[in-house]
Amino acid sequence: MTSADDSGTADPVGSTESVVDTSSGLSDRATTRSDTIVEAKGVDVFYGEDQALQDISMEIPEKQVTAMIGPSGCGKSTFLRCINRMNDQIDVCRVDGEIEFRGKNIYDDDVDPVVLRRRIGMVFQQPNPFPKSIYDNVAYGLKIQGKTEDMDQKVENALKGAALWDEVKDKLHTSGLDLSGGQQQRLCIARAIAVDPQVILMDEPASALDPIATAQIEDLIEELSRDFTVVIVTHNMQQAARISDKTAVFLTGGELVEFDDTNRIFENPQSQRVEDYITGKFG
């Protein structure tokens, strides 16, 4: 429902052109060589009897923005949640294959998912600030990780990093829930970057926001990719084209059909299925 609407309503040719225009500025960065930080090797995911992902292999480059697009139910969010083992929370979910984070398989028995998630942060679709003050929201991760020295400075830096500082610096001790949706989402981003992770996973972070708030988040994501590796799931192809260096296209059935530099995916997709999807012929 979501992805089909976005692409299907636009004129296929027109949308492709605009996509190329906006992404061309990023192509230089995309083609520079970069080290792999997360590598999936033959990942299968099952929910009970149902297979959600089939044999996914991909290398996610460090300090770049990698987008994952595809129609609803294609497994892109599932894959994202495998990278920080959030799927562990779901009883019936089973993950086969390997996902390496800096060369270490995160599904090895000696990996503690709690520690893993301190390296790989996450921002969710719905802004989910805690019912605490703005300050305490950002400080929460620092507190549970025992990084309590220079707390004020770290909170300020995180809020600046999330482009929220100027809006909230005079009301740090009011509830995070009093902020607007876009501000709440940037608060959640501040909360994630406060603990200085290496990778930030974003699960459709702008889909619940209005266009202006969405643009702010998109700008922010480009900023963040200087210091962090960003992996973003989106059903909005224009968004993927605008902000990402690499794009992975998942299609129905849980397959990774194509994974390449973003401008190549949108300009010159290798498979007919991907071309049909990004030009809006199906989805």
Partner: peptide, 21 residues
């Protein structure tokens, strides 16, 4: 809401942290 729990787990909270805080 589970959203709140997930937010905390994603920050590297243990079950005990999530329960208590």
């Amino acid at each position: 809401p589970d959203d709140l729990r997930n937010g905390a787990y994603a920050l590297g909270a243990t079950k005990f942290d999530v329960s208590l805080n």
